[in-house]
């Protein structure tokens, strides 16, 4: 049996591939993942917006005991990335040397395999960030 709920992740492709967020047209707040009611001003007027693809590491961890299906990548880094517009996203930091990561390090978005549901299952792709070079 597959662990992956295919429609559940398929639905998130605009966010996972292209960092699509929603912006409140009344107060300007940006939500990722997108919301359709504003927690700040309660407005329901939203427009789609793309997040910037560059930011800095706000905090990070190196995962050394991974949930099953992520063991191939151990050790891997997961970080909170603060994007250029102030929006924060959680992401793996790929193509990095974990021991050299630092708070404040500039990173940029790339598309990678996020989750591989076994050799018979679907491959789910999505953004990760890597150190800018």
């Amino acid at each position: 049996m597959s662990d992956l709920r295919v429609p559940k992740l398929w639905r998130e492709i605009p966010q996972h591939y292209r960092l699509e967020a929603s912006k409140c047209l009344t107060c300007g707040r940006i939500y990722f993942p997108p919301k359709t009611v504003c927690n700040n001003c309660k407005s329901k007027n939203f427009e789609k917006t793309l997040l910037p693809r560059k930011g800095v590491i706000e905090t990070f961890t190196i995962i050394r005991q991974a949930p099953s299906k992520y063991e191939l990548y151990v050790p891997y880094a997961v970080a909170v990335v603060k994007l250029e517009n102030g929006v924060k996203v959680l992401s793996q930091i790929t193509d990095c040397e974990p021991d050299k990561l630092q708070i404040g390090m500039p990173v940029e978005a790339v598309i990678r395999r996020l989750y591989d549901d076994g050799e018979n299952g679907v491959i789910h792709y999505g953004f990760k960030f890597r150190p800018v070079f």
């Binding site: 559940k8 905090t59 961890t61 995962i63 997961v78 992401s91 708070i103």
Partner: peptide, 24 residues
Amino acid sequence: HEYETIHGLSPEGAAALVMRLYMH
């Protein structure tokens, strides 16, 4: 799930993100 677990974050990983920032 779609925004944290899918990235391979573990519960202790989430705590580690908080802890590093707190220490910093």
